[in-house]
């Protein structure tokens, strides 16, 4: 449930679901997000779900804070329903040419490369949100012993398809971008495809993701 609604600037509602980051709070955020999206509430022009917050943006020409707040408060959100989501398998190649930060991870986590991969691949992840850059999924939770801080100095260019780790999350760089996550491997799959206007994102909030290791040959031939 929303604990508190305040304003972010003069064009958005800041809906606070709590401070913790866990699946149960995040599922509430996603349910609110999906319900509001379907209802098409007057003046609302954007919704940004994240771990434990939902930002509701509106067009100040059509409505205002109090009106949108009232509409949201009166909304009937069925929070007990199960989320309707997908399970997705993402191929990942962890060849040394693509696993840019594996040495750093070995050192920080005090685990061998094989152990790191084993931990990473034998786990199902939950998509908490997408964003920062178009279609980038934030996937959690990594095992406790797999949690590393981001790079002290972010890379100016992280290659497209890179799979990165930071703290309890993994993400996928949907295109080349600056970034500070620890890069473990790379996926040849198009996680974001802007030519698909209606469904450009492969992974959406609430979806479940597993990673499957592929060889460098398979990686290179994947899109042929």
């Amino acid at each position: 449930m929303i604990k508190n609604i305040s304003n972010l600037g003069d064009t958005a509602l800041y809906c606070d679901f709590g401070n913790e980051v866990n699946k149960s709070i995040n599922s509430q955020v996603i349910k609110y997000f999906k319900t509001i999206k379907e209802k098409k509430v007057k003046g609302i022009n954007n919704l940004t779900p994240s771990y434990n917050k939902l930002i509701i943006s509106y067009d100040l020409k059509q409505t205002n804070f109090n009106e949108v707040k009232k509409n949201i408060e009166n909304l009937n959100v069925e929070t007990s329903l199960k989320l309707n989501t997908k399970r997705i398998e993402i191929p990942i190649c962890c060849h040394e040419s693509l696993s840019l930060d594996v040495k750093r991870l070995e050192k920080i986590l005090n685990l061998s490369r094989d152990k790191i991969l084993e931990n990473f691949l034998n786990k199902e992840y939950f998509c908490y949100m997408t964003g920062f850059i178009a279609g980038m999924p934030f996937l959690g939770d990594l095992n406790e012993n797999m949690r590393a801080q981001r790079l002290e100095t972010p890379r100016v260019k992280v290659p497209k398809g890179s799979v990165g780790l930071t703290e309890q999350f993994a993400n996928i760089y949907t295109f080349e971008s600056p970034g500070g996550w620890n890069i473990l491997g790379n996926t040849p799959v198009k996680v974001f495809d802007s030519s698909l206007e209606y469904e450009p994102t492969l992974i959406n909030p609430g979806d479940t993701v597993t990673f499957k290791e592929i060889s460098l040959d398979q990686y290179k031939n994947y899109n042929e």
Binding site: L8, G9, T11, A12, V21, N46, S50, I55, S57
Partner: peptide
């Protein structure tokens, strides 16, 4: 803070 939504002007 934990990453959360932004709007222009923030």
């Amino acid at each position: 803070i934990k990453s959360e939504g932004l709007i222009k002007g923030v």
